[in-house]
Simulated assay, not measured.
Amino acid sequence: MDTLAAAPGTGPNTTPLPVLRKPLPRATFESLPTDRAVVMGILNVTPDSFSDGGQHSSVDEAIAAGLRMFYGGADIIDVGGESTRPGADEVPEDEEQRRVLPVVEALAKAGALVSVDTRRATTAAKALDAGAVIINDVSGLEASQDMIDLVADRGAYYVLMHNRGNSRVMTSLTDYADVLDDVLAETVSVRDRLRAAGVHDEKIIVDPGLGFAKTGEQNWTLIRGIERFLDLGHKVLVAASRKRFLGELLTTAGKAAEPEQRDAATAAITAVVASRGAWGVRVHDVAPNLDAVKVAARARA
């Protein structure tokens, strides 16, 4: 096996980064496994994300963490520079790009398949230039036409996540006549905008948006109804990792479980949705979820 060379930014006061002497071939979407659900590792380059804020706040730390995920078996690394937790402040565009672009570039050069988690078309465009293949857009119903046109023009894969409003107001927008029917209809309305702009169906990945403008019980309803999303004919990504509704489920003595105590429950959901046909899961802790999708695939076989 090739030994590792020093990475940019390494030195006596920085974290050593494992970078291959011979860069691996750039990963492609077509090289993703088709015999099981794919595992997308979450890499937040932020100081304020709900679960891992501040853990990867420097570029060097983020690259090292992303490489650990990649070498640990993650199929995709999803890099984000702006927290989407309820109540989070908006990050200036230039700061978001300062956080994510060097990380995207380094991981892509190492051979990882990289997704960029952003609401902004300008950041998404620069991330694609840096080597990202997927745009993971949490803006939901507010997806900008610039973003849609970018996806069409560049042929990027696009995660269409259902959401209402932004992080400051979404918790007040949980009024649905029927949460499953309404989320599906609203998702289809954005999907149709993508189609109208020339985006091909195979480039669209649908995410029900657990935790975004949904109550805990509404999240469970969407999980129970995952087949309805599969019926749309697109790849379906489920992102339940460490979310609040899992903390509520695991309440002990009146205290909800902390985010880092929710990984086993996350893996359980991974096994459930993977066994029912979900294309992928987006998770913080790669190893147990990789095990879960392999178990689900074997059970389905």
Results as ranks from 00 to 15, higher is better:
4 L>N: 08
4 L>H: 10
4 L>M: 15
8 P>D: 13
8 P>F: 14
10 T>N: 15
15 T>I: 15
19 V>P: 00
20 L>T: 11
33 P>N: 14
34 T>P: 00
43 L>K: 02
43 L>V: 10
46 T>P: 00
51 S>F: 13
52 D>P: 01
53 G>P: 00
53 G>V: 08
55 Q>R: 15
64 A>V: 13
72 G>D: 12
75 D>Y: 01
77 I>C: 03
78 D>F: 11
79 V>W: 00
79 V>F: 03
81 G>R: 09
83 S>P: 03
84 T>L: 06
84 T>N: 01
85 R>K: 13
93 E>A: 14
93 E>S: 12
97 Q>K: 15
100 V>K: 02
106 A>H: 08
106 A>N: 02
108 A>W: 03
111 G>K: 05
122 T>D: 13
124 A>Q: 08
129 D>W: 01
129 D>E: 15
129 D>Y: 06
131 G>Y: 07
132 A>I: 12
133 V>K: 15
137 D>E: 05
139 S>Y: 03
141 L>E: 11
143 A>S: 14
145 Q>S: 12
145 Q>E: 13
147 M>G: 08
148 I>G: 02
153 D>F: 00
153 D>Q: 14
160 L>V: 08
160 L>Q: 10
164 R>G: 02
168 R>I: 02
170 M>P: 03
175 D>I: 11
180 L>I: 12
183 V>E: 02
183 V>K: 08
185 A>H: 11
194 L>Y: 04
200 H>Y: 04
202 E>M: 01
204 I>Y: 04
205 I>N: 00
205 I>M: 01
205 I>Q: 00
207 D>K: 11
207 D>W: 05
208 P>T: 09
209 G>C: 02
213 A>P: 00
221 T>A: 15
224 R>W: 07
226 I>G: 03
228 R>M: 07
230 L>W: 04
231 D>Y: 05
233 G>Q: 07
240 A>L: 13
241 S>F: 05
245 F>V: 07
245 F>E: 04
247 G>E: 03
249 L>C: 10
250 L>P: 12
252 T>K: 07
253 A>P: 00
259 P>W: 14
261 Q>G: 08
267 A>C: 07
270 T>Y: 12
271 A>E: 11
271 A>L: 14
271 A>M: 13
272 V>N: 12
272 V>E: 11
275 S>F: 01
283 V>M: 04
290 L>W: 02
291 D>I: 12
297 A>V: 06
297 A>H: 09
299 A>N: 05
